[in-house]
Design a protein around this nucleic acid. Structure first.
Lengths: 405, 405
DNA sequence: CATGTTTTTTCGAGCAGTGAAATTAATGCT
DNA sequence: AGCATTAATTTCACTGCTCGAAAAAACATG
């Protein structure tokens, strides 16, 4: 039945994982610092780092002779990751573009390819081919680093199946229900992981703001879609599909505005870029959503609203109301201490804030526990990358490296 | 920073906990069965059970001489909990009544007291006094068992604070913001735990239906309130207040019907007994909710609806719609494989089912992943008790017993 | 009574963590 | 230069845990 038996091997894994995790979060440090950070004894740190050095996972750094001879006693020798023992390929797939980054085990970006994505991209060639082509290209350009490829991780939007390795629905055309993860895994003989972008945002946000590292945070992406990721006291919630969030497709108004997903009344249909545009131009709610909104157009609308344009202001109010009620409803189930708004919509946060707060005030939990701190973080691109990067490297650390004999 | 160091002590705790957990779930069994169930080696099971027997935590059961000499080899000797090494006091507090049960470490009910609760109960005497009086009464009646009191656990409705040991809001009059947990803990020198009833329902449901033990289940109580508890692949979600659920007070319609909590448009205001009654009798939505609804009256309404009464049927449709949209909205954040409806409202499930399913169909997640299995379980009383019982005993096992030297 | 079967215990090995003591490598003072 | 001081790291002896294999225990059968 349960195979949660603890033995000396699991102790080893756990404590090696602790050391690797500390190095991942805080960067290279001395053995003494590692002992303090992990809580392990100096003797254990010596043993563990000795093994890791022997396995080439970490290495002693050359002390920088910066005359910073501040110390009195024996100077500390820092240990840090050996960048060259592995690499990961990170895909970020969006409605309009895809980006592939090759990073080494130290988290350093080695090379990167960007490609446009159109609604036809995955109709013309299978997603697996699209991904494989680009990955091979990067391998060819960086043969040394690519030799140690250990993981492929892909950031997608949509709904994953329960195992987390298939995409059952996606706003990205022709991407769902194509078994590209399995095909890539087979082609490159490397584990391939799919991650929801919303979830990565939550992961990334923790790295951007250390104060949030152990808090319960809901990170809301507002842009061409509306999505959410949640951390629960520092743990990312959910694996596979449960605990996952299709926040953007939570119903806001029954039988309301038509959403890209085909349903009606989703939050996204009011709060995403196309929703706001539709409202601002008084296009009927039931009109088919625009397939893509140029960012200039969205920014232009923000500018108009900020300079007092009534229709534009109204559209952002509607959007804020949708997001606010969604948050208020979510808080009946999950009550984070912080809410982060990220993505292009974060630039319009000021225009939505009043409605968001008003809606939150209608949640009993907010009344009682006080409302969460809602703040906007501009620029979601790097959080996704950072989240994908750290999640993937951490996965390598804990699964591959910590378990080494 | 992190103190997740693993050492031989944590190994011991983990594996002892595994043994205790197996006995808790599956009852007394042989050492060989324990080895199979936990995955530990026979040698370890011998060592662990030897310690536990020495500590009087478990004991070898006298083999029942039922001539069931089915076996060939050495007959197995079962080990099971020693009921006499501890006891727990379990309060279940409701809007109309409170029940205190004294149970022994084996989970056997020793004695029980029931008391009515009125809106004045906790106004007249402090909650701590109310609880202490009854607990002392039970102690006096059962001096032997009460001597080993290890835990007091209280099932309440309402919102707990983040630590989980204070009640910040409750539908039970004058119960919130009274530090009774601390006062009881001080008075009886025993840890006192508060549990949300909804959460216990989720725990209890797992014990009632083994098929649900490892599934992700949302358990919805419908009755004098509407509440929810969630399990996530067999884990109860949330500690303290996060991950907690005030599902009943999720907004259903902005500015809608007046709820007992003082907000407007909560699911509870439509789906609880008072909500249904109010709708059925065409009382204005903004009328103050009835403080309590006699169960005959609620059952009478169900009977009327089942025999075709239009007003009653309509009221239950409205209720089903509120629950259904609540579930559909919840599923944008958390997507369980099963939904259990329990409580008095489960008897009206047939009247609400169509509306619930219709509302669920409007959730994208349901469209893609298929809708959850929604079933009604009648009689919520014992699930709460069972949940409170198992949670408390398990807490004793894992915190007190597993950590014994 | 010998033999087979199943359960349980015993025994020696292996492994990881720990505290205390020793070692190493610098600095500061005389 | 020489020696005490300081701080980082390693060494060492010991502990406690699990495990596999072998032994012992307890009963059934022929």
């Amino acid at each position: 039945m349960a195979r949660n038996v603890s033995d000396s091997d699991s102790v080893r894994r756990q404590n090696r994982g602790l050391v690797l995790g500390a190095l991942r979060i805080q960067g290279a440090m001395s053995r003494t610092a590692l002992a303090a950070s992990t809580g392990l004894s100096h003797a254990s740190i010596t043993a563990i780092t000795h093994d890791l050095v022997e396995q080439q996972v970490i290495a002693e750094l050359e002390p920088e002779e910066k005359s910073d001879s501040r110390g009195r006693g024996r100077p500390a020798t820092l240990v840090g990751f050996n960048r060259h023992i592995g690499a990961a390929a990170l895909f970020e797939v969006d409605v309009n573009r895809a980006r592939l980054s090759l990073v080494d085990y130290g988290g350093v970006l080695v090379d990167r390819i960007e490609s446009p994505v159109t609604p036809n991209t995955f109709a013309n060639s299978p997603p697996a081919v699209f991904f494989a082509e680009r990955l091979r290209q990067l391998q060819a350009r960086n043969p040394v680093e690519a030799a140690g490829l250990r993981r492929v991780a892909i950031s997608v939007q949509g709904i994953l199946d329960r195992d987390g390795d298939g995409l059952k629905w996606s706003p990205i055309a022709h991407l769902a229900n194509r078994p590209f993860a399995h095909e890539l895994a087979a082609a490159f003989a490397v584990p391939v992981a799919l991650h929801k972008r919303g979830r990565l945002l939550a992961e990334g946000a923790r790295w951007l703001d250390p104060a949030l590292h152990d808090a319960s945070v809901a990170t809301v992406f507002v842009g061409s879609t509306v999505a959410m990721g949640m951390t629960f006291r520092g743990q990312i919630m959910g694996r596979g599909d449960e605990g996952a969030t299709e926040f953007g497709h939570m119903n806001h108004l029954p039988n309301g505005a038509l959403c890209r997903c085909g349903m009606r009344g989703c939050i996204e249909a009011y709060a995403s870029d196309y929703g706001v545009l539709r409202t601002a131009y008084s296009v009927p709610e039931t009109a088919a959503p625009a397939p893509a909104v140029p960012s200039q157009e969205y920014d232009g609308l923000i500018a108009r609203a900020e300079s007092g344009d009534r229709a534009a202001t109204h559209a952002f109010n509607i959007a804020g109301r949708a997001v606010g009620f969604g948050l208020s409803r979510m808080m009946a189930v999950f009550d984070p201490s912080h809410v982060l708004i990220v993505g292009p919509g974060a630039r319009a946060f000021g225009l939505m804030q009043a409605e968001i707060n008003a809606a939150l005030a209608s949640a009993l939990v907010c009344r009682v526990n006080g409302p969460p701190q809602v703040v906007a973080h501009r620029d979601e691109k790097e959080p996704v990358f950072k989240g994908l990067l750290m999640k993937t490297l951490n996965e390598i650390d804990q699964s591959d490296i910590a378990a080494l004999a």
